[in-house]
Design a binder for these strands. Structure first.
Length: 260
DNA sequence: ACGATTTGACCGCG
DNA sequence: CGCGGTCAAATCGT
């Protein structure tokens, strides 16, 4: 991915891009470290080194990153939680800054959050793609995803992923609604196969990266949960009441819905 | 065979 | 009526 702008470091704009990308990489590395924290995985060290490398590069670029604070400590402060409470959740909450708003015409009552990342990013939930649409005046199509547990747990969370036209290295993900499913992540395993160049598959839990120099990059989370039955069948059979849901990852991951 | 993705058709809001 | 969002049959992958 980086090579799409590394050749233009001479310009201020490109330099800014480099810095932003580096910060993003460091942020993601910290996130991954949080995810791996407590799992006893040797990958933690590796991730810490990656994070440190990003910091070193930023230092070389003379970036005075005084505002940077380790995301996990931020979360602890925000949530009043210790890491032991839920490292995975903590890490994910820190992932990016959120932009709140109601930008979806057809779901004005739903709380939406927009995030921009260097690739379609994992958020710890299993998503299933249900549509793709070319948007007027947009160079890239928009992909539509909904929670895999829409029928078996009545989870109404959906998201839209679209590559940003002005900045093809970035993807904008719009989250609409909250997860009510209880499909927590198992401690993810690091998967560096880097083999799948495809658009984000919809059901992920273990982390895997795709960094071939293609149009499509992703850090995704592959669901290890059992597959669902066909939607049409579940529509008929899964009208269960789930009022006793546990707090889902997204309840940590996303700011509280002001409407609820 | 089963589940996920693709993609054209359809729906509904503005 | 146009556009974005969703549906669902067809297709693909394992």
């Amino acid at each position: 991915m980086a090579d799409c702008w590394l050749g233009n470091l001479a310009t201020t704009a490109s330099r800014e891009r480099v810095i932003e990308e580096m910060k993003e990489g460091r942020e993601l590395a910290n996130q991954l470290r949080g995810v791996l924290f407590g799992s006893g995985s040797p990958a933690v060290d590796l991730v810490m080194k990656i994070s440190k490398s990003f910091s070193n590069i930023l230092s070389i670029l003379n970036v005075n990153d005084f505002n940077y604070e380790h995301p996990i400590s931020q979360i602890q402060a925000e949530l009043g939680l210790g890491l032991a409470d839920s490292p995975c959740l903590d890490a994910r909450k820190s992932q990016e800054s959120f932009i709140d708003g109601d930008c979806n015409k057809k779901r004005k009552t739903s709380h939406t959050q927009i995030r921009k990342t260097p690739f379609p990013i994992a958020d710890g939930h299993a998503w299933r793609k249900y549509g793709e649409k070319n948007i007027m005046k947009a160079k890239y199509p928009r992909s539509y995803y909904r929670c895999t547990h829409i029928y078996d747990q009545n989870c109404k969370a959906i998201k839209q992923v679209q590559r940003i036209q002005e900045d093809p290295c970035l993807y904008q993900t719009t989250y609409i609604g909250h997860h009510t499913c209880t499909n927590f992540l198992a401690p993810p395993k690091l998967n560096m196969d880097c083999t799948s160049p495809g658009e984000p598959a919809s059901t992920f839990i273990s982390f895997e990266t795709t960094n071939k120099l293609t149009d499509k990059h992703e850090l995704s989370c592959v669901s290890s949960s059992p597959s669902m039955k066909s939607e049409s069948r579940l529509k008929k059979t899964c009208d269960m009441d789930h009022n006793d849901q546990l707090l889902s990852i997204s309840d940590y991951f996303m700011p509280p819905d002001p409407t609820s």
